[in-house]
């Protein structure tokens, strides 16, 4: 984000207070993460005796054990599959729906748009019981599809509304001239709408990826097999079971946090843009 304001400098007492508040808030934000990071390199006895000290002989022992004991490799793989498929599906379903709703002159478009916006108010908890019962009956429980479908459904309302306001801005003339050239609507979608929507698609995909990656309840309830758990669920369950094995707890939590720090470093700018322009918290 650019700091445009280059006005006359604020008075000294404001700047001193600003430094105090900023440094304090940043420390409270970052120090627990840093502490977790270096503590995870200590053996258990050292963690108990000197909780705040740096490791005397840093070792990745805890990581090796947490990784194999917690089945975290499988969990990471599951997270990538759930999140990857759900993000791509949501993106194209939402763009297609937005194209239909924005550029075709049918009255039902108003109804569909309204129906999707109602979805913003619904929570997972409002539908999880019937959905669970239905998945049991259809046999979707304990399948990857049984997790991915609700991921996509819950992400559609927000994604469609973001896509809709963008696709509306694409000039009708472009679409009309393609029609005159004899292009089918499917061709218009893939060769015109999708490429032109690239900037908003990037924001949508990044926000969507974040929501899917951090989702908890669907995986937690709809899968009972360890082989299907996502990373956040596997780590919560693993860390919760290690009563006094602090080193294992810390290492597994770092494994859960690291991919997101990497993601944050890669996409910080888009995240700030996406959230700053009014994406909701969830």
């Amino acid at each position: 984000m650019q700091y445009r304001s280059r006005l006359a400098i604020a008075p000294l007492h404001w700047r001193i207070s600003a430094y105090i508040i900023m440094v304090l808030f940043t420390l409270i934000t970052v120090f627990p993460l840093v502490w977790l990071g270096y503590s995870s390199l200590k053996p258990n006895a050292e963690i108990v005796q000197h909780p705040l000290a740096l490791p005397q002989a840093p070792s990745f022992d805890n990581y090796v054990r947490a990784w194999t004991m917690g089945g975290l490799g499988t969990a990471l793989e599951n997270s990538l599959i759930y999140t990857g498929i759900a993000t791509v599906s949501t993106l194209f379903l939402a763009l297609a729906a937005a194209f239909g709703l924005a550029k075709f002159p049918f009255k039902s478009a108003k109804f569909f748009t309204w129906a999707f916006s109602v979805g913003l108010m619904l929570t997972v908890h409002a539908v999880i019981v019937p959905l669970f019962l239905a998945e049991v009956r259809i046999g979707l429980i304990n399948t990857r599809l049984g997790v991915i479908l609700p991921y996509v459904a819950f992400d559609l309302p927000m994604s469609i509304l973001i896509a809709l306001s963008y696709v509306k801005g694409i000039p009708d003339a472009l679409i009309e001239s393609a029609e005159i050239d004899g292009a089918k609507y499917r061709q218009i979608f893939w060769s015109l709408i999708v490429p032109l929507s690239a900037p908003v698609a990037a924001t949508m995909a990044i926000l969507s990826f974040l929501r899917h990656w951090n989702e908890f309840l669907f995986v937690f309830i709809f899968t009972t097999k360890k082989a299907l758990k996502s990373l956040p669920v596997a780590i919560t369950q693993f860390a919760g079971r290690q009563n006094i094995e602090y080193g294992l707890q810390y290492a597994s939590l770092v494994i859960g946090i690291m991919p997101m720090i990497l993601f944050y470093m890669l996409f910080h700018r888009q995240l700030v843009k996406g959230f700053g322009e009014g994406a909701l918290k969830e």
Binding site: T29, V30, L33, L210, W213, N214, F216, P232, V233, I235, T236, L253, G256, I257, M260, I261, F263, Y264, L271, F275
Partner: peptide, 9 residues
Amino acid sequence: LPITISSVI
């Protein structure tokens, strides 16, 4: 930064 870390973690 914390915005990216899942709530359960």
